[in-house]
Design a binder for these strands. Structure first.
Length: 480
DNA sequence: GCATGATCATGC
DNA sequence: GCATGATCATGC
């Protein structure tokens, strides 16, 4: 590329996009040449900087310190984002997409439309590269290039997310922000772990730095779209598939996504499983997950058949990573069962040394939709029968920061023992410890094994919430 | 009665 | 066939 002026029109998104395709399959060093890399003042190590390297050396676009989008004439923001390759060969999202630092002092005076996030990120050029440990940024290969214009319906949900984050800061609770507070757009932690926290306008408590980001779950759906389109893609078509979606854009004008969903449960509060089946005109089942099935059916409302038994597959749940959890409790409110999550992916735990990028962090900072069914008043514990349980409450929940700290210790313990090849219940947290979370087996049967990154096979274990912890969560909600 | 281990049900 | 969410079954 020596001596070549970049052949694109900086006022045109289409032209910038065309030009970006030259990156696919190559690294920056291959494209601009080693001499230029050697002479560059930019560093290949450490965090950040890749976007700047692309802008300066590949696009040869003068870097400005303006607050707007990177390509200001075209109104286009440039974002580099990492992928990782699994042993199976599949490409996966490495992390959330960090968009814009949150300035606690100024953001409280903004509306969504005047916010820098909105001005910058409504149209982005996303360049996916393959992340490799200990490899200089000059040598990372680019894989996909995408123009991502955030769809109108997503923007509606993101607007609510933005407002919820800003409201929290206005209440003087910037230090209590969590990625789980919101659906698509999240306030993610940013900066070093031991870095000094910052001031916030409505409280004297200092708060860690945070940035607006699109959740890993959201980025996973972007990646799925790109994979389906080929190595480069433009999201200028309407992406929402009505067969997969839970709410439509008209309903979102009547309230937030979460309000719409909670509203669907309201008419059934107090009714038993059998009564709800009757109302919905469905045949009662004897399946052991029948409570979960009916909870999904209620949440789905009039949505398509493809998601009515499992709203986790809906567009909105996929993009937000929200998890519906059904909880059954005795008449005194005590939760009957522990709550399980997916199996521990030992490879992931082994390879990833960053808590904030871990799968467990993503699961536990998800937004949860708890749906509680309770034994009728006066019934004794030994009369417990799923058919009689009554819908008590449905609410969205986020794990509070102090419990996320506990979760980090839980993860540290799991990771330490996976690294030491000690994948056994005698090393992990158990329920007796009463530490909110524990580790327990889960497989098809006792012979169902998983690969051990240290070699060989081991039993499958998974992450659990202790039932007492879930009882606490439910009670705190019901007492409000 | 509870902790732990084991398995079921569903959907892709 | 497998991953995930949910619940069952056993033994102390």
């Amino acid at each position: 590329m020596d001596n070549l002026r970049p052949a694109y029109d900086k006022t045109s998104i289409a032209s910038i996009f065309e030009y970006s395709k030259k990156l696919i399959g190559h690294s920056l060093r291959e494209i601009v040449g080693d001499d230029i890399v050697q002479a560059s003042r930019l560093q290949g190590q450490g965090k950040g900087g890749l976007e700047q390297m692309l802008e300066e050396l590949f696009f040869q676009y003068p870097i400005n310190s303006d607050p707007g989008p990177d390509f200001k004439e075209a109104g286009l923001e440039l974002k580099g984002t990492g992928l990782k390759r699994l042993i199976s060969g599949e490409l996966q999202i490495k992390e959330r997409l960090v968009c814009d630092m949150i300035d606690y002092e100024t953001v409280v005076n903004e509306t969504f439309e005047t916010s820098l996030f909105y001005i910058k990120c409504q149209i982005m050029l996303l360049i996916f590269y393959l992340y490799e440990k200990d490899v200089s940024k000059w040598d990372l290969k680019f894989i996909y290039t995408v123009i991502w214009k955030i769809p109108e319906k997503d923007l509606q949900i993101i607007r609510h997310d933005f407002e919820r984050i800003v409201e929290k800061i206005r209440r003087g609770e910037a230090h209590l922000l969590s990625e789980g507070d919101t659906d698509y757009l999240a306030a993610c932690r940013k900066g070093q772990k031991n870095e000094n926290p910052r001031k916030q306008p409505f409280s004297c408590v200092l708060a860690p730095r945070r940035a607006f980001s699109l959740k890993p779950a959201y980025m996973r759906t972007v990646l799925a779209f790109v994979k389906q389109q080929g190595e480069s893609a433009v999201s200028n078509i309407d992406l929402s598939q009505p067969t997969q979606s839970l709410v439509d854009i008209e309903e979102l004008k009547t309230g937030s996504f979460e309000e719409v969903i909670i509203g669907r449960f309201r008419p059934f509060i107090g009714l038993s499983y059998l009564e709800i089946c009757n109302r919905l005109g469905v045949q009662p089942s004897k399946a052991k997950n029948r409570i979960a099935i009916i909870a999904n059916k209620i949440a789905a409302g009039k949505s398509a058949k493809t998601i009515e038994n499992n709203v986790n597959n809906s567009e909105e749940f996929q993009k937000s990573g929200i998890r519906l959890k059904t909880v059954t409790s005795y008449s005194n409110g005590r939760v009957k069962e522990d709550t399980s999550f997916e199996n521990i992916d030992y490879e992931e735990v082994f390879d990833n040394d960053e808590w904030l990028d871990s799968r467990l962090y993503e699961i536990f900072t998800s937004r949860f939709l708890f749906v509680q069914f309770q034994q009728p008043n006066g019934q004794r514990q030994n009369e417990f029968d799923l058919d009689n349980l009554e819908l008590k409450t449905a609410f969205f929940w986020t794990m509070p920061p102090q419990d996320i700290d506990t979760a980090e210790m839980y993860w540290d313990n799991i990771r330490e023992h996976v690294l030491n090849n000690e994948i056994s219940p005698r090393y992990f947290w158990n329920k007796r410890m009463h530490r909110k979370f524990h580790v327990r087996p889960k497989g098809r049967n006792a012979k169902d094994l998983a690969y051990n990154p240290n070699g060989g096979m081991v039993q499958k274990y998974c992450y659990w919430f202790n039932s007492e912890y879930v009882t606490e969560i439910i009670q705190q909600h019901n007492n409000f």
